[in-house]
Structure formats: C-alpha cells, structure tokens
C-alpha cells in the first residue's frame, strides 16, 4: 500500500523554512562573529621601504605607478604579507572525518529511503519487505 504523507499546516511550513534559513545564515555568520573565519595574511613590514628593498624591479615599479601607487610605504604591508599554512593534524583528521562521515551518513540514510521509493514505484520484491 502506498505511503500517504501527512498534511502539513501553514504554520508548520513556515517553521520548516525558518529552520533552514536560521541554519544557513548561522553557518556563515557564526564563524564570522566568533572571529574564526578567513585566512588573514600577516604583514612583515620592513624599515624604510623602497621599491628595490621590497623586491620590485623596474617593470614592476611601472605597474605599481600605473595602478596609482607611487609611494612604496603605502604597500609595504601588502607586499610583505604572507599566509601561514601551518596546520594541526588533529584539525585535519576532524575535517576528513566530518566530510567522509557526512557522505557516509547521507548515502546510507538515502539508501533506506530509496528502497521505499522503489518498492512503491516498482512493487515490493520481498513479502513484507
């Protein structure tokens, strides 16, 4: 016998949509508000910066000037800033487990739902199955 889904009232529909919205906005904004988001570069400014001291050759100096930047001190931070790619192995393992675990969870639960769909669409292969 075909599964007859429950009827959902308007309030419950709105509740479901709001739930998804809160989850979505939270996923982006919670790390932002906690100051955990993004990969900030760390500037390593040098004393008395000149184009040469900042490693900019003649051609690159012309490019900076064409971009409207003539004072090397104004881009001291930009040129000397670098990302820090050091990481903790524990964090990497947590990342791997969460991604792999997520896909395993979704595929397994999907498979249970999929079998119900097929049984209803094509008829059950197993008595009482």
């Amino acid at each position: 016998m075909a599964y007859e889904p429950k009827k959902q009232g308007l309030a419950a529909q709105i509740f479901d949509v709001v739930t998804l919205l809160v989850l979505t906005v939270g996923a982006l904004y919670v790390p932002l508000y906690m100051g955990l988001a993004g990969a900030a570069k760390t500037p390593n400014p040098i004393e008395n910066p000149t184009w040469e001291a900042l490693g900019q050759n003649a051609a690159e100096q012309r490019q900076w000037e064409a971009l409207g930047i003539t004072d090397p001190a104004s881009v001291n931070d930009m040129i000397t800033a670098r990302f820090d790619y050091s990481f903790s192995w524990a964090a990497l393992i947590i990342m791997i487990v969460s991604v792999v675990g997520y896909f395993v969870l979704v595929v397994r639960l999907s498979d249970r739902e999929y079998r119900e769909v097929l049984d209803e669409r094509f008829g059950s292969k197993r008595k009482g199955g």
């Binding site: 996923a27 988001a37 990969a39």
Partner: peptide, 22 residues
Amino acid sequence: VFLGYGTQLIAMMCFYIIASLW
C-alpha cells in the same frame, strides 16, 4: 580550503549534517 578556511569548512559540514538529520 582547509589550509585557509578550515573553520568555515567545519561550520559548513555541521550545517549539512544537521540539515540532513532534519
């Protein structure tokens, strides 16, 4: 992505796991 934005990645995975259970 993990190298620079690991926190976002974990936050994103939490979002999809909770949404899946929901």
